[in-house]
Design a binder for these strands. Structure first.
Length: 849
DNA sequence: GACCCGAGCGCG
DNA sequence: AAAGCGCGCTCGGGTC
């Protein structure tokens, strides 16, 4: 039996010209597997209980199964059977989605799956199981028919889906295929006794355990038919009726709210809200705003704006959207930012993210399939990209359906949020959204004159490097041998050049690897890469003509709070969180980020060493906590301890060189102290510090002798994870299995960090004063664009808010921020460091960790 | 032409 | 055995 988890293993979609109906009708007679001569046991029948609670559904018989004529007796079958609780053994039925063994374990084809499906259906109707546990991709595809893009077992495992098989309704539990677990084990040379072969193996065990535990109290599966989904949608074309319905909705406890728009962002000249829809318990309706096919008179159109505004500002219902930042950004853009803090908004995508953060499974479409067994997008059959050209009635229906499922999904997920004890986390998540939407709307200024200068400068550099490369003798030899032009931007070409022409062994063509090569071409390639990367990633993306730059001359990067597995934010179009800051050759691109008004300056305030403080908060390590209160400099101390154990690390001549010793402190900090906090092993620290492995092992022991509770905390995380199936930080955030050992340590650090920073940002936004609204958030940093003469006054408010953290767990160590300012985003100088441990207004402190 | 993937590299 | 974590973007190189 194979394993079914990658794209390449999906069945081919060709039915060789035969319709699915035809294949279903003729079953085995038109099945290619029926032709096979060498099968020992073709058409293997299901076995086990005739009145089963669960149907255990595999993919197809394997070699062993075919030989003996019994199902689930091979290696994969054993993995499943070993995990069946005794009390369930006689309540199971065993079957495969394909009854004959495909030759040489090849994948079943769509044709074979379709032919076999009626056999499966008849068995279901005869035996009526309450649940199906399906192993791997093929049963999932055959039973649930998820859209191709969702057909990844890794996305579905750990969930349950209501399914309707020819009228029989039951729950489908997708699980990994055991063959995948065998494959994962096979990749490792050695697995210690008692350890899982992979995190997937732990997840598999967890899934099975939870699925069996579910059986005692299975609810009725809810499945919406297309008729139910589309029933009673009112398309409103009368303004008075819109007024009546909106006012009625405003009085309801909850209302789904959805907008269809021209474009994804409201900052373009063509941006329009095309239609809107609202769905309450009694009613689902939609109406036009600026759809080209709308029939409103100018007066009517104005009246609709008044009604929209009233609904957004004055309704007492919960306004529920899926991907709330979208509805908030458009609503605030057209009806004023004030509406973001009026009434109560809810976000079903945030709920879903809290319950299960897997990427790719947060769309309304996916969640409707999971919760209601309904293919939402299939019903509407609408091309979202050209909504302004689609028939208006279709757009309005589609719009209304979305609003309906916003509300239904909210109710379904709310129950689970509550029962999992995640209300507080959801409330925090909700507060992030208006804060980040307001940051998106605030925007980031770009000075196009700087952009032009830099583009010229880096283009010249790239050209110069390219010219030198073209003339290099090694490149000439490459071109002679290959018969084509050498491309310095192609890792493949570079790899060939270094290995086959220069005859130098390399592991990769990364900068660090090239640095070790004693040939001018290595340096030249880096000299070519740097300016080309700078141009394509950081200059072109902010220059006129880029889709990222809007008519207001600003960037409005999209910030997401439901993408990153650890609760951090992410930024795209462009990613403003990874602009060069350190490399002298590259960091100049930050000077593009600048107001054209010379009175406006950039002010950044970042949390000093927040992740290390998170380690102290999490572990409550006595020595680490005290270090913060007593200004003990861990990194200098450990620099000195490393030298003590390995004197060769720092040449004698440098021991009295203050600047050099600062550099070694930095090395000790990043390559040893922090790395060890985060779970790095001696192998890694040895590579980072470039000192022998055994010394690093000794150092590690010495380190955990000083910070005993950090090691304890690492162990606790491990234990908690295997007991509960997720890892959590002090904020209650959860990251669910599979999670690897080092991810276990990092996750609470990143999540608590993000809670602290984004809570501060939310509090600043809630002041509802644009002066204190950050324009950027970069993980430990909030950045503002302020009039120069206002900086001191505004800074006081912001700093105070940032260091006054409302979480008890955070205040076991002092919190410190560092502010800097300048005319642009790179030419910045330090204003000062401020901490809350000596709070007396703003206290500037000297010496930081 | 649209999509997918890995390599490489920027940030915290 | 593997060997801090988390992202987004661009390119080359491939497929359909």
């Amino acid at each position: 039996m194979g394993f079914f988890f990658t794209e390449s293993r999906k069945p081919d979609k060709h039915l060789k010209g035969l319709s699915p109906e035809f294949l279903r009708q003729h079953e085995c007679n038109v099945c290619p597997l029926n032709e096979l001569k060498d099968l020992q046991h073709p058409k293997m029948l299901p076995t086990g209980s005739k009145k089963p609670t669960v149907l255990m559904l595999g993919e197809a018989p394997g070699a062993n199964e075919d030989k003996v004529g019994k199902q689930f007796i091979g290696k994969s079958g054993k993995i499943i059977r070993d995990r069946v609780p005794k009390e369930w053994e006689d309540k199971l039925r065993w079957s495969n989605s394909i009854r004959c063994r495909p030759p040489e374990n090849r994948n079943p084809t769509t044709q074979e799956l379709t032919c076999c499906r009626p056999l499966f259906e008849r068995d279901i109707l005869e035996t009526k199981p309450k649940a199906i546990f399906g192993f791997g991709y093929y049963p999932l595809a055959q039973v649930v028919r998820p859209d191709t893009k969702y057909a990844q077992i890794g996305l579905w495992r750990g969930r349950r889906i209501p399914v309707d098989i020819e009228g029989h309704r039951c729950w489908y539990y997708p699980m990994f295929h055991p063959a995948y677990l065998i494959y994962e084990r096979s990749k490792r040379k050695y697995i210690p006794e008692g350890e899982y072969g992979s995190e997937a193996e732990f997840a598999f065990e967890l899934d099975l355990k939870r699925a069996f535990a579910d059986l005692d109290d299975l609810p009725e599966p809810i499945i919406h038919t297309t008729e139910q989904a589309t029933a009673n949608v009112e398309i409103v074309d009368d303004v008075n009726r819109i007024a009546t319905l909106l006012d009625e909705a405003a009085q309801q406890p909850s209302a789904g709210y959805d907008l269809e728009t021209k474009g994804l962002r409201p900052y373009t000249n063509e941006a329009k809200i095309l239609t809107a829809s609202v769905s309450t318990k009694n009613r689902t309706f939609s109406f036009c705003l600026d759809h080209p096919q709308s029939i409103w008179s100018r007066l009517e159109r104005k009246q609709i704006d008044v009604l929209m505004k009233r609904f957004l500002y004055e309704s007492s219902c919960k306004k529920i959207s899926h991907n709330l930042p979208f509805e908030m950004e458009w609503s605030a853009f057209f009806y004023g930012k004030g509406c973001l803090y009026e009434g109560r908004w809810e976000d079903t995508q945030s709920q879903a993210y809290l319950l299960d953060a897997r990427r790719g499974a947060l769309s309304l479409d996916f969640l409707c399939l999971q919760y209601f067994g309904v293919h939402l997008k299939e019903i509407s059959g609408l091309d979202r990209k050209n909504l302004d050209k689609a028939p208006i009635k279709q757009v309005l229906t589609y719009n209304a359906l979305d609003a309906r499922y916003h509300r239904l999904l909210y109710l379904a997920q709310h129950k689970r949020i509550k029962s999992e004890g995640l209300i507080e986390n959801y409330e925090h998540q909700l507060r992030r959204i208006p804060a980040l939407v307001l940051a998106q709307m605030t925007g980031v200024p770009v000075d196009q004159s700087v952009v032009k200068t830099l583009k010229k400068k880096y283009t010249k550099r790239a050209e110069e490097a390219a010219a030198k490369i073209a003339k290099d003798e090694s490149v000439l030899r490459f071109e002679e041998k290959k018969g084509r032009v050498f491309n310095p931007g192609s890792p493949q070409d570079v790899n060939y050049l270094i290995k086959e022409i220069l005859k130098v062994e390399i592991e990769s063509t990364e900068k660090s690897e090239l640095a070790h090569i004693d040939h001018p071409i290595a340096k030249l390639i880096v000299q070519y890469r740097e300016p080309t990367k700078n141009i394509s990633t950081y200059i072109d993306s902010v220059s006129e003509g880029s889709e990222n730059l809007y008519p207001d001359g600003m960037l409005h990067p999209t910030i997401s709070t439901t993408t990153v597995i650890t609760w951090r934010s992410s930024s795209e179009d462009p990613n403003i969180q990874n602009f060069p800051k350190h490399d002298d050759e590259l960091k100049e691109v930050r000077s593009q980020i600048k107001s054209s008004d010379p009175n406006i300056v950039v002010v950044s305030i970042d949390y000093a060493g927040i992740q290390a403080r998170n380690v102290a908060m999490e572990s409550l390590d006595k020595n680490l906590v005290n270090a913060y209160w007593n200004n003990y400099d861990i990194h200098s101390d450990w620099r000195d301890r490393i030298v003590k154990r390995y004197p060769k690390w720092i040449p004698k001549s440098k021991l009295s060189d203050k600047e050099a010793m600062k550099g070694y402190r930095q090395l000790a900090k990043n390559k040893f102290v922090f790395a060890t906090f985060f779970g790095a092993q001696s192998y890694t620290t040895s590579q980072g510090l470039e000192i022998p492995r055994n010394i690093c092992e000794e150092l590690r022991e010495e380190f955990f002798d000083q910070f005993k509770d950090i090691e304890k905390w690492h162990k606790h995380l491990h234990k908690f994870y295997y007991e509960n199936g997720y890892v959590t930080g002090l904020s209650g955030f959860r990251r669910r299995a599979p999670v690897s050992g080092t991810e276990l340590i990092n996750t609470p650090i990143q999540s608590d960090e993000s809670i602290i920073v984004l809570d501060a940002m939310a509090r600043l936004s809630e002041l509802e004063d644009p002066r204190y609204q950050p324009a950027l958030e970069v993980h430990d940093d909030l950045t503002f664009f302020w009039p120069k003469r206002e900086v001191e006054k505004r800074l006081e408010v912001v700093v105070k808010e940032m260091v006054t953290i409302p979480f008890k767990w955070a205040n076991v160590v002092p919190i410190e921020v560092e502010a800097s300012w300048g005319p642009d985003w790179i030419n910045m100088s330090k204003i000062g460091s401020f901490a809350n441990n000596k709070w007396d207004g703003i206290v500037e402190i000297k010496g930081s960790m």
